[in-house]
Amino acid sequence: MVRLIDAQVSYADHIAFSGFSLEVKKHESVSIIGRSGCGKTSLLYAIAGLIPLSKGTVALAEGSESCSIMFQQDRLLPWRKVIDNVLLGMKPGHETHAMELLGEMGLGHKAHDYPKQLSGGERQRVALARSLVRKPRLLLLDEPLASLDEQNRERMQEVIASVVEDHGITLILVTHNIQEAIFMGSRILLMTDEGITFERKNPYHRLPEFRTTDEFFALERELRSRLGGTA
């Protein structure tokens, strides 16, 4: 689905990451954790085609149109109603699908409100609907829940997990939240300045009841120690 080979992204004053290789298979959910500034966001932007690679290659099996990104901030346009935000850049004919998605997110009744009239959690759900209305085969999530409180964050993780499963979407999530990475990722990667330094299959992903088990906390401890303390 996605293949990066020896990829590098450099800015005028620093290198975000270099010598980075990654392969993500269809229907896989990959969580990438790492410290701030290790290049996680740049990696997602490079996959989405928002920034060019300075070295190496990135290939999406179904082309860049098959990929949709959800940003750290909801980036809803304040002058467009909820439904119009969801339909941003879409050709006419997707209104029913957009309304269905908003309904799935529990926001059908807010379709004609403006973003200003929504709570933080609702705004993120609209942003998710906007990413999904394009029927992506690959969904890139750049710490999309960082601004939410614990309760909303867990609820949104479950919403995303169920939508991804129902729609058969391949997922790449970058986050600095270890619990989120464990819940969302069938594979967890640890990204540092040296590239991927640790990788682990996670059979317990998308299981809400797993959040309070010893295995969950053990995995969290392991990842935290590999990350070197606070992520």
Partner: peptide, 21 residues
């Protein structure tokens, strides 16, 4: 710039960028 990034991420055409953003 995040709005313009959004426009690129969702493949908005130049006329759409003017009209919508």
């Amino acid at each position: 710039t995040q709005y313009l990034e959004l426009a690129r991420a969702f493949h908005l055409k130049p006329a759409e960028v003017i009209r919508e953003i």
